[in-house]
Amino acid sequence: MAGNSFGQLFRISTFGESHGVAIGVIIDGCPAGLPIDLAFIQAELDMRRPGQSRITTQRKESDTVQILSGIFEGQSTGTPIALLIPNEDHRSKDYEHNKNVYRPSHADYTYDAKYGVRDHRGGGRSSARETAARVAAGAIAKLLLKHAGIEIFAHVSAVGKINAPALAPLPVQELFALREDNIVRCADAAAAAEMIACIEGIRKDGDTIGGKINCVIRNCPVGLGEPVFDKLHADLGKAMLSINAVHGFEYGSGFEGSEMKGSEHNDIFETDGKSPKTLTNFSGGIQGGISNGMEISFKVAFKPVATIMHNQQTVDSEGNAAEIKGKGRHDPCVVPRAVVIVEAMAALVLADQFLRNKVSRL
């Protein structure tokens, strides 16, 4: 199976299945001498782990990370960093009923058609459990970016048709406190209360619902991104669209920008005598595929989780008509746990482009 690696200079490769012994990641290209804060890595994983609130899956995983290599006396050595996260609470019996049946909107049929074999236990490699490995790697990328003063913040901006107002221009630490003050991880308390009530109702109905996550990147230096195929927004788009259940990505003005005139959309430059700034930021901090020093902003849309507790018509591996109903423990809405995944993937992109930019000129 190809496609398990991401990045060029700061490169990760993830491995493992949802119901296997463990999942993990190997990070290649992390510079030597980076202080590694294990407590920070664990705290990031704790924000993604299952069973953390009444509106998430009740699978109980501690997601305790183990460092196997690449770190000595609290610092990176410049060699590959290997991180392992054991699986502790997998219930494979919950998936026996769909061993030979294709679940609607899952990867069952496509995996079977492509490889001729599939791990039906929780979706195997296609399970969102794989994203824990990305979060662990993203935590190390965040530690690298912290030295450059780059900050990344994401929060749940929508659940179904409930939309939070635009983020207030507050320091990231204040926004983080507002976000972590509720279980849906929305930085607006009033919108969060509506979202939680919506998700609880959806869960009682045995259904699921989608949502959106907004992300901002602050203090990004000018010059990150390669101007043709590896544009910064293109790398961010690929990173976000690689996350399970993501169905949409837009940056800056996004799709709304297509409804504007050029005279309305152009970001006019001004200067404070040091470096050019723009009066508006419809470009989302990226022009020509390269960061321009303004705040980078983007949105990620997640579809409803495909496993629902209703009877659905489908087919089996022999092509016969069948019926299936979801069993086991599943998220009614994925976005509260996906916030840290979005941040992790953004950090991996920025870390890679940051290192690439260091070798782009004399």
Rank of each mutant, 00 (worst) to 15 (best):
G3A: 11
E73H: 12
G285K: 03
D112Y: 13
V216M: 09
G160F: 08
G252H: 00
E323H: 12
I209H: 00
L175I: 05
L175A: 06
S92W: 12
I324K: 01
F302Y: 04
D207M: 15
N100L: 10
G223A: 00
R329D: 13
A128R: 07
E151L: 02
V65R: 04
A344C: 10
G78A: 07
R356Y: 08
A39K: 06
K277H: 11
L167F: 00
H106W: 08
R185T: 07
C215K: 03
H330C: 10
G20A: 05
I308L: 03
S18Q: 14
L45N: 00
I36V: 07
A191S: 15
I67C: 10
L178V: 01
I26H: 05
R129A: 07
G123T: 01
D235C: 13
T278R: 14
A137W: 09
D108L: 04
A168K: 11
A158N: 05
G289Y: 14
T64Y: 07
G254T: 06
A137Y: 05
I199W: 02
E180F: 02
L178N: 04
G254Y: 00
N214T: 14
G211N: 03
E88D: 14
M240K: 03
I81A: 02
L241Y: 05
E270D: 08
S317F: 10
F298Y: 03
N244H: 12
A128Y: 08
V246D: 04
I81F: 01
P336Q: 12
V25I: 10
H106G: 00
L144T: 02
G70D: 14
I268K: 14
P332A: 01
A301I: 11
D108A: 05
L232V: 08
N311R: 09
A22W: 02
P50M: 01
A239F: 03
S76P: 01
M260F: 11
E295C: 09
G223F: 00
R203D: 12
V117W: 08
L143T: 03
L38R: 13
K60P: 02
P304Y: 07
C215I: 00
G29I: 08
F40G: 09
T14G: 08
T278L: 07
G288T: 05
A107Y: 05
A128F: 07
G29D: 06
M47N: 11
A166C: 01
D37Q: 12
Q312V: 03
K325H: 11
I196D: 08
F302G: 05
M240Q: 13
D235T: 09
D181G: 11
L170S: 05
A22Y: 02
I26C: 09
F298V: 01
A107G: 04
H310S: 15
A139N: 07
